[in-house]
Design a protein around this nucleic acid. Sequence first.
DNA 1: TATTGTATTGGAAACGTTTCCAAAGACGGA
DNA 2: TCCGTCTTTGGAAACGTTTCCAATACAATA
Lengths: 357, 357
Amino acid sequence: MSRLPTIKDVAERAGCGIATVSRVLNGSGSASQSARERVLEAAEALGFEFSALGRSLQSSSTRTIGCVVPSLANPVFADAVQGAQEAALAAGYQLILACSNYDESQELHAVRTLLAKQVDALVLTVSNAASSESLDLVARRGVPCCLMFNTATGTFPSWAIDNRAAAAEVADAFAAAGHTQLGFLALQFHSSDRSRQRYEGFAQACRAQGMREPVLLEVRETEGNLVDLLGALLAEHDTLTGLFASNDYLALAAMKAARGLGRRVPEDLSIAGFDGIATGLIIEPNLATVVTDPHGMGRGAAQTVLAALAGEKPPCKPAPDLSFHFRPGGTLCPPRPDGRAGKNDDGEAATSPSSTQ
Amino acid sequence: MSRLPTIKDVAERAGCGIATVSRVLNGSGSASQSARERVLEAAEALGFEFSALGRSLQSSSTRTIGCVVPSLANPVFADAVQGAQEAALAAGYQLILACSNYDESQELHAVRTLLAKQVDALVLTVSNAASSESLDLVARRGVPCCLMFNTATGTFPSWAIDNRAAAAEVADAFAAAGHTQLGFLALQFHSSDRSRQRYEGFAQACRAQGMREPVLLEVRETEGNLVDLLGALLAEHDTLTGLFASNDYLALAAMKAARGLGRRVPEDLSIAGFDGIATGLIIEPNLATVVTDPHGMGRGAAQTVLAALAGEKPPCKPAPDLSFHFRPGGTLCPPRPDGRAGKNDDGEAATSPSSTQ
DNA sequence: TATTGTATTGGAAACGTTTCCAAAGACGGA
DNA sequence: TCCGTCTTTGGAAACGTTTCCAATACAATA
């Protein structure tokens, strides 16, 4: 087809100047009744729509928010994006999405591109908030930015929970059930500060509870079937009675892998996850996990930058003390008492001395 | 901070014209060694980055693809978006995402906004491809567009499967197991042509197999807890021996609802889903479903419009005969023979006459 | 030295808006 | 009738690029 009609075409057809067209169509400034009618008719006939491009160039505002998350495959991030999207839309902003695939260089590239596109603000989950080239770049450009899931840095606000404290609660639950030797399962340990914080909080609480140092089980690459990789890892560490996965996604995969190895959950292996995704409540038994509110985090982060753009101060505290709670589930129960030292504080669980191993 | 440096600032600092800066930084046209060095130095010192805005205005190409899906909560769409995103990124394009929340007016608004932003192309899943205001608008503007999940229209190509044929396979599986009275479960029946197509194919195959007309169970609004709504619906229809949900998401929720009612799956109620999301293989027993490739659809749709932009013809057939297959699962088994007419073809399943009802 | 050719350079137009500003027209009051 | 005021109007600048084109500089050839 021919090129799109511009304001100039409308002006020509209406027999007036482009300034008048702009005023009429935007409802700004004054115009005579006759001019108004002619412009409206012309715009209608031509199917004219303003180009956001020219507009943005002139106003230096794109009414667009950039968003970067590691991946949409994890429902936690999908939820957060959805939340951010809703908040943005409600304020008349559009969301540009990019995924970093847990890769710091892709993350940087995404941020760079979004900045070049002149997004008005950014909402990010970065690999490592404490030392991030992406965040440095954002800071240098002075674009409003709010983190999600990452704990706040000195420079940027964030919607996130206290990962260490949450992980400690998981350790406490395992301890209360009588476990003594646990494992921590991580998928992208090197590129997720959340995962590292959870491990730290978990390990510290394990020590405080008098348990042995938790074993770190790390799946490095996503190449190969995740369940198979987990199966191999679990087979290696068959003395563990409990496993804390750094997210529910991983916890569910681990459950499947364990079953594939003939180990029952939770009788042979207790499992707890992190995030509280919906699937955890669908499976039988329900997954023990830390329940968070990813949708709320996304929405909150978007509202925070939106408020900054509007010149207001953020509506809600974007502090790292966001709410979370440990949700008990059928996947975490007392370990079977067998040959190894099981210090069961509640007499009830320690009665049956039958050991199959 | 002060405003961002523009090409003009670089030119001034380098002591040359803006044309020279553009040539040097873009590697187009010629420039002397000395000019090259001064420009590079100035750009570096100022932290200059091109503005995509000015660039797009001049080139009338934003290197951006608009994407609209109903929701990110359903992993099927999250997967497709991820696939489209990857394809776009590989071609140097960015993805702008919008969600319609299964609402036709939001869908139209999203498309309108994306067109105003001058996206180079669109990748959409619409409510109703056969008659869509959104698609009419896109057609009028002449912007390259490819559908996902919706079957192709005369105007637009699409990456989708034959929903009717797929649903027929599900009906066949139920028939082979000996079911005679089935239900079809839909969440947004009025605003999903996929769901309607699946119902049509299912109903037709049921008739062809000599089964009774399937009962349509429709959940209208998303207000209230989905599982509770499903529970009420299932309680109403307690004579059904099998249920086909229009997507896995819904199938899983229905399983939970059925269990809440004390009905065992599959002993009391067989369930099959549609899509083949990962969760279906994690739960026990595995969900019987139609396996599709949402990631591939997203990627394919993006590649199709990308090819159109490059002037090439689409690389792969974006025809509606995309691959899918029915995956049997533990959630679909023969019905318990009880008082009602159960025509079990295989003698084995008809042996136990015990009926708890 | 005069002439041709080539490499380099910057001015200016164009892309589609908004908005400032000055000019022109309408209109009421004196 | 004339002047001041208010409304309506359109030209032009600005936003940040790319690119055409003419001009300049310089080297090489005749």
